[in-house]
Design a binder for these strands. Sequence first.
DNA 1: CGTAGCCTTGAAGGTGATCAATGTTTGTGG
DNA 2: CCACAAACATTGATCACCTTCAAGGCTACG
Lengths: 229, 229
Amino acid sequence: MVAPRKPTPINELPIFQGLKAEQVQELIRGGIVVSTKHHEPLFRAGDPASYFLLVLQGAYKLVRSDQQGHESIMCFVSLGDTIAGLVMSRPNAIYPVTCISIGQSMALKIPRETYNQEWLSHPALQQHMNAILYQRMNRMQDERLHQRAPLQTRVAFLLLNLIEKYSSGADRVLPLPITRQEIADSVGSAVESVIRLMSDWTSAGIIRTEDRRIEILQLDELIRLTNDE
Amino acid sequence: MVAPRKPTPINELPIFQGLKAEQVQELIRGGIVVSTKHHEPLFRAGDPASYFLLVLQGAYKLVRSDQQGHESIMCFVSLGDTIAGLVMSRPNAIYPVTCISIGQSMALKIPRETYNQEWLSHPALQQHMNAILYQRMNRMQDERLHQRAPLQTRVAFLLLNLIEKYSSGADRVLPLPITRQEIADSVGSAVESVIRLMSDWTSAGIIRTEDRRIEILQLDELIRLTNDE
DNA sequence: CGTAGCCTTGAAGGTGATCAATGTTTGTGG
DNA sequence: CCACAAACATTGATCACCTTCAAGGCTACG
């Protein structure tokens, strides 16, 4: 396993840009830092939503599963992302999804009361949260738009999205280790189909995978697949 | 065509429950009531998002289309629903979807500035908007969960959702006239498939359709299809 | 009365699901 | 340190569901 990097200081997260240390202290009042192992759930769908969360290190996946046990991945979250903002202000808040750690990760649990009292009344934060929501909604709609497209289009789109979200420089390695199963769960297909597709891509020299790190070799080719007929 | 009913007075919309007439006046300052004919767009994806909208009568569909001209219906909205709340607070706001009238409809266009100044600072409204967002996000996730399910499951789920959303009493007629094409665009399939499915359901006595009004005869049967293997 | 929108039906064909079996790597406990 | 279990990757064969294409009918409306 890769040695975990040092956690980013909380004050330096983009969401707290331009705030003073004392203000940040107020915003995370009562907060607890938790560390989770690979596959460990941070919370489960149905649990009382007592905490708003901020990812400090690593990544998580937000999933739902149906009666047959198939998992659908709704969203990946990573450094600086927020979780469960929408559900906080609801009476009898219940998490609608299960949140599972990908690799060794860390998150800051902020009590619901702190969030409701401090965050909602803060215009800049409110706007920031709004922007995050807008982007997530947008992404879900984009994926919905591709629902009828062939599998390759959907997978290409997913990979491009994951890269773009954390494109620090021209980095062409996916920012988080991801299994074929998780890709399948994300685009709504079977593992075997994803494996066959990615094997083809590998032999065509479009991607390269090492363990669970996926590297894009021919970005333009993936983009072409996205716009495909 | 059915004769349009009288529009509900704006003050009586659920979203304004408990507010005084003067307060409501403030909230809709600069608002314009517009009437749209069947198929007429209220705004298009890409237009500058200058207005927040409130549906006063009839219904609209929010759609996106891909390169090949396939339309995906993201959401149906009806009496009392709000449109474009999330995009208002963004700099250079652009509508991400196209909004098309279903039948003769009416909406109240509220200037972006009014929304940003009045609505966001009002705790009760903020909470109400939050709830709407949460529900929509939830619904999108539910549909995502059913993505792998057979067509019949997805259509059954859609119909049940549409009924439930406006279940005034035990009404089993869909609250809005909807074509097979629109059902297909909603669940991400081809018209022909939807038609074949619904023909089967009709001969099985599960549903009945007259023009574009769909009536559910055997609700339990639809529910069973939703939970289907 | 012709066009446009909607519904219907049939035939053909493909994409991807499913099932089954096997290999590989990782992690864990004796 | 080895053995075993668990998670992940792979490959092949089969086939159902749904898409696509083509053609035609129905109704509403200008």
